[in-house]
Every structure is written in structure tokens, then in C-alpha cells.
Nucleic acid binder design. Sequence first.
DNA 1: GATCATTGTTCTAATAATTAGAACATATTA
DNA 2: TAATATGTTCTAATTATTAGAACAATGATC
Lengths: 300, 300
Amino acid sequence: MSRNPISIEVLETLDAIDRRGSFAKAAEELNKATSAISYAVQKLEEQLDIALFQRLGRRSVLTPAGRLILAEGRDILHTTRRLADKAKEVATGWEPRISIGIESLQSYTDFFQVINGFLLDFPTVEIDISECVLNGGWEALEQGRVDLLVGSPGPVPVQKGYRSVAIDRGELVPVIAAKHELAKQVLNKQYMDSVLRQLRRVVIHDTSFSGITRSEGLSSDGQMFYVQNMDQKIYAILAGIGIGNLPKKRIQGYLDEGTFVPLDIQQKDSSEAFLAWKINNKGKGLKAITDRLIAQQSDK
Amino acid sequence: MSRNPISIEVLETLDAIDRRGSFAKAAEELNKATSAISYAVQKLEEQLDIALFQRLGRRSVLTPAGRLILAEGRDILHTTRRLADKAKEVATGWEPRISIGIESLQSYTDFFQVINGFLLDFPTVEIDISECVLNGGWEALEQGRVDLLVGSPGPVPVQKGYRSVAIDRGELVPVIAAKHELAKQVLNKQYMDSVLRQLRRVVIHDTSFSGITRSEGLSSDGQMFYVQNMDQKIYAILAGIGIGNLPKKRIQGYLDEGTFVPLDIQQKDSSEAFLAWKINNKGKGLKAITDRLIAQQSDK
DNA sequence: GATCATTGTTCTAATAATTAGAACATATTA
DNA sequence: TAATATGTTCTAATTATTAGAACAATGATC
């Protein structure tokens, strides 16, 4: 007699359908039969009394209402999962999962070494890493979508209850390839902002560590292009695929010859980056991880 | 096999238990047997592997973890119910959210009265207001970042598929304080444009209405300074904090004595401002809002 | 302190919901 | 045209949820 026809399960189903592209693939992912998916969708449509999919032959496309439920449903799913985690943390003092948002990294190897060490000592804690771009990190921290920010550029927002530790960022420069079709426009200060929004971000997405899950990028509008390591990132940007932060040392040659053009964003002292987390986050796992990251930082 | 043990139903159950004070009363409200409630709670506790209630004889008290799930669970329930409502309205031509870009307003009170009335009648439609400055409004409309422009200066771009209605703008003059350090430079027509960009905008940001969200300003490079009302705005600009449009009547004295200097932008007939939206935007909410705004306009 | 009503748990059986699998129509690809 | 894949429907089977009775524990009332 639940007055509310929307259930967590059906939201997970819709999410899987959208991610995998079809009822059949979604069924596979959820370990169910296709018919179960079909019935679940039908039931929701019936109870809401609206169409969520427009049946175009064998392929189904979301209606506007369907898109709305999908989009907001994902928020609900996310909130619900985190709620379960938080409840466990309250009960045990240890969080079952730590979400880390990475905005820039000086050394992927060093960072993942710390994470790896942590996971060896505390194998029950899951680590969930998501890439943040264009200062999306601070917002994600504020909204509780991540527990820890790594490499976010200053200034650190004040009066928000954050604890922050400056880390060496190397010298990262945001660049675009000179031959990129939008290069000229993005350098024009007047249009920069709107053009920036259209540019693809090239992001390192190291998948070689197990025990670590990945969330989708936190910046929703801009598309992302994922590469495995710094070399690939340099070449991808060189090829005009998109933009991204690169270590100055590595690309000085390209900068000199004008193949790479630096983008004029983040006027504030861009050499400073921060680790940051909420002061009121008392998770033991978070403390352990930040302790290790800071220790590694000062070792060098 | 659902990895997420929290369901909408069990949240409703917890909510009822807390509101009614006992499993038995909750069962009554939900038209279930007490045993069903008991099993539902047990199942959740088992799957989360934490205790939600501390059994003190016949009376059960929530544990801290239980209180957390109850509190956040209520948010989730609320969001979910609203989502169902919104989806239904989207399916019938109502948009879930209307983004309004404000470029100038003659009377904040009148405008927000209309918005408030609209929200009372259509509480499921979200209103998102962002401040536009320096003709950023037309671009935002074109790019679909706002659905409705309020108070944007003419001329209305043609051949773009916009519908526009002229509104009385009073007589607003863009000014800067004479004592502002960049006042001299900005008055030099040659450098005006680049100097303008560096100047802070003083913007009224009325936060006294609930049910309305705010986006960041659409002009990103220039910083904004937010004030609560027109009086504060005048004093802020007077103090040299930034620039902005002010009603001529209110500042005639300052203009005469030279404390305020008018900026020479928008040579076109600046007394005309417009409501504008895309013709192909058929949203019923947008229509309702524009109808009301126009009606209010002609009432005077 | 005895009685009585109320509560939450457990058991069993019944009911309702979800699901798998096969058959089919339709659409896409080679 | 054949071959593959998709989504719907049907039926039967499996699961999950629920009601109702019996019970122990608690608190209230006299």
C-alpha cells in the first residue's frame, strides 16, 4: 500500500538500463532475466501513470519524464548508499567507504602507493575515486559527495569547516594544443568561459589498482577523455583531443615552440594545491589516510 | 542481490515507528501486522549489520545510527515523493525547473511577489535565479542556460526565435563612484572594455524567499558583490566597491554633484528592457510565469 | 503485589510479488 | 536473405512479505 511507487530497486534498474543501453544488457548486469526488467519498468510506468520510455521498435528511448527520474534517481541512489555507509560509521567508528576526489596529482605512483598501503592494512574500507575538474572539487566536498579532496587549487573556502594541508603540486600548467580548433577562441578572454565549457577534459584514469572503484566525473556538462598515464595525457592534449593540467617541466619544450598554449585560468597562486576534508568528519579511516598522505608528503 | 539494503519502504516504516512511538502503532498506520514491522526492521539491521533500535524491554529506542538513518531517510522520502510528482507534471508539459536570468529589475518586491505567487500555485516547479550582467543574459538564453530573461536591455537579437515583451525599466543608469581608483580609466572609451571586465559588479541578491535556488553569476571572470537591497547597492557603489545599474531618480543628487559618474555603455535606448524567452519553449510553467509577469506589468 | 493491557518476538501458514524461461514479433546487421 | 539481438507476453516456479496466534516481558492500575 506504499503510496510512493518509486523504489530504490527500480531506480537501480533504470540506471543500469541507461548505462548499458538496453534492457537486455541491464538484465545481464543485474543478474536477472530480461522479462524481469521489462516488468519492473512497466510496473513503475503503470503506477506513475506516465511513459518513461518511448518504444521505437526494439530500441527504447527515455521520455523527458524518464530522463528526470533517471537523473534525480541517481542522486537518490547516491544519497542512499552513502547513508548506509554513514550509519555503519556511526555504529563502528570506521567508515566502510571513503570517497576521494582528485583534482590534480603530482605523482600518480606515489599517491597510489599510499592508497595501496592503506588498503593492505584496512582491507574492509573501500576506496572510491572520482576525478574532479575545474574546481568542482570544493563543491563536491561541500555537498558531501567526497570525503577527501586531493590536489584542489586554493584558495581554500573559509568558514566551511574544512581542514586543509598544502601539498606540492609541482608546477602544473593548464594547456591546450595550438592546433586545437577552439584554441584561438579560448584564448580570447571575453569568450574564454563559454568556450571552456565546451572543451573536453583529458584526465588520467589509472585502472591498474584493484580494490578501488571509480565514479563518473563530477563535472557533468563537459565531456571527459580518459587516459592511463601522464605520457598518454600529454599526447592526447597534443593531438587536440582536449585540455588538461600538465607538469611544466615535462612540456617546457612544447611551450617554448608554441605547440602548447597555456590557458589563463586560476590566476591565484596556482602552484599551491591542497588536501582537504571536513573537520567534522571523524572517520578513523579518513584520519589514517590523511596521516599517511601528509607523512609521505613531508618525506620528500 | 541488491547491494543497497536501504529501501524506500523500510524508510517509511522507520518514519512511522518514530512518529507513532511504537511498532504496534506504526503497524496500525501502515495497515500491517506488527510482525511485519518487526521483520522489516530485523531485516535491515541484519543487512546493515548494525543495531538500529536498542531493545529496552518492550520499548525500543533508536540508536545513534538509527537516528541518522531516520533523519536522512526522511529527506530521501521527501525527495522521492517530489520526484514522482515532478515526473507526472513533466509528462503533461510542465517543466521541473525554470531558470530565470535577471539582468535588471525595476522593483524587486513586485517581481518576487509574482514568483512567490507562482510557487504557491505550482509548488513542484523549481525556480532557479541567476544574475546576469553586461548583456550576458542574451548569451545565456541562446545557450539554454536560462529559460527566461528579465530586464535585459535591447535590442532584442533577431532571427533567433525569441519572443520578447518590453517592460518598463524605470530609468536605470550604469554608474561608478567618482572616487573609484579605476573610474578615470573606465571613462576612457579606448580602454573601457578591458577595464570594465576587471570591475566588480554590485548585485542585489534577495535571499528572503524560500523555494528559490540561486546559481552563480553568469559572468564568471568579473567578481560579484552581493547586497540585500537597493539601499545597500547604492552605498556599496558609492563606497567604490564596484559598478552597477541604479535608478536615476534615486541618485540624481549624486549625479549632479559628480559623486557618481555614468558609464557610457549600452548606447542603444537604455530605457527599454525586455522579458524574453524562446518561442520553441512550450513549457506550461514558463507560460504561466510570463503571463503573470506581463499582467503585473500592465496593471500599473 | 495482583491484575490487566500493551508491546515486540517468534512460529507457521497463507498470500503476494518477483522472477526465469520459452515463444514470439520486430528491428538491426551482415 | 539469413543471422543476431531486443523487448514483450505467457506460464510456472521461486521468493519475499505478511497475517494471525502463542508467548514472554514490561508497565500501568487498583
